[in-house]
Amino acid sequence: MIATLLAAALASSSTCTPVPGAEALWNDDTRYVVVGEMHGTTETPAAFADLVCAARAQGPVTVALEFSESMQPMLDAFMAADSDEAARAMLAAYPHGPFVHHDGRGSVAMLDLLLRLRAMQRETPSLKVIAFAPDTPRVPGFSQSYYELDMGHRLANAARKAPGSRLLVLVGNIHAQKKMIESRQLTPAIVHLPSTEVVSLYVVQQGGNTWSCGRDACGANPLPEIYDVQARGVVVQPYGDGAFDGVLALGPTTASEPAKP
């Protein structure tokens, strides 16, 4: 199944669609553009790829994806493979990570995103793609906030390694918040980055579905309409009581199933 999906996606992998309002993201002082998503939709990875496409015209770009850092060698090999067939084989054979243990990050849409990034890197060799989710073991007595600290540290290190690049980050919306989540006593990853260098966008819920796993089963689950269903694109205006600098409105979403059954 994964080989068929990969072949189908390659046909249009370098096609980019402008995202309304995205020009507000390319301020010279902005080092990090963070997209906080609900995993498992078709629309968010596609829109994120379009943002990466637009960012290339503004200067060097590093793309940071919420994959385990242990996946980096495979990701490097996938991006650098001599042929599309070799890249497909690497990902299909990889025995770990979200393409095996499903939480929405191993979806068909995420696979399409990787293929589009691979095509973009052929056009723009300076484009880098990194996996930044920590493999740090959980230690009793140390909360989720320590994991978030490690995640923020890895993003900061990526910025230091490419000081002339803008980082575009795709991550779950909990990690993308710019203030402490009091109800959970949680300090999100993005809090640890210099606030004035970060634009964090929340992918607002406008109805539709996402693919996720509950207590009993995995599948398409409905999302509520909590934002103007007609709105589209980037809106840079504080959202969530200051937790985000703006929103990314993509309309009602569709669930994206796992790329590997």
Rank of each mutant, 00 (worst) to 15 (best):
V171I: 01
G104Y: 03
M38T: 14
T15Y: 06
D28E: 11
G104A: 06
S68T: 10
Q237Y: 07
A176M: 04
R232T: 07
P60I: 03
D28G: 11
S143F: 14
V100Y: 07
C213N: 13
E182Y: 07
N221P: 10
P18K: 07
A7V: 10
D103Y: 09
A89N: 11
T210Q: 14
A55D: 06
Y147H: 02
E69A: 12
S145G: 11
E69I: 08
L127G: 03
H101L: 15
G97I: 13
V33R: 00
L113S: 01
G208V: 15
A55G: 12
E197Y: 04
D112Q: 12
L149I: 10
A77Q: 02
D103H: 12
Q230V: 05
L51A: 02
P45Q: 02
A9Q: 04
L25N: 01
S12T: 08
D216A: 13
A162P: 10
D82M: 00
R215I: 07
P20V: 09
E66C: 04
Y32M: 09
G97M: 14
R118S: 08
S83Y: 04
T136Y: 12
S212H: 06
V204I: 14
L25A: 03
D112F: 05
L115V: 05
T124D: 03
V203G: 02
P60H: 06
T30H: 05
G141E: 10
A64G: 03
A77G: 09
R215C: 11
D150I: 10
M180S: 02
L91A: 08
A46V: 03
R88D: 02
P258L: 11
R138Q: 13
K128Y: 14
S165R: 06
Q205S: 08
T124A: 08
L10E: 13
C53P: 02
F67K: 04
N27G: 12
I190Q: 03
S68V: 06
K178R: 06
L117K: 08
L25P: 02
P134I: 00
L115R: 04
E123P: 01
D228N: 15
Y202S: 07
G104E: 03
I2P: 09
L91G: 02
P194F: 08
E66S: 03
D76L: 01
V169W: 02
A133H: 12
A133C: 00
Q185S: 14
G106L: 11
G240K: 00
V191Y: 00
R154T: 03
A57W: 05
L149P: 01
L186N: 03
R116H: 01
Q230W: 07
R122H: 00
A131R: 05
L223I: 15
R88A: 05
L127I: 02
E123V: 04
C213H: 15
L167R: 09
D112I: 06
D29G: 14
A156N: 01
V234L: 05
A159W: 04
G233N: 07
Y146F: 12
L115A: 09
A162W: 07
E37F: 01
L25V: 00
S183C: 03
A86W: 07
H192L: 13
E37M: 07
V229K: 07
A57N: 05
L6N: 11
C16Q: 10
Q58T: 09
V129E: 06
A49M: 08
T62V: 14
V199A: 01
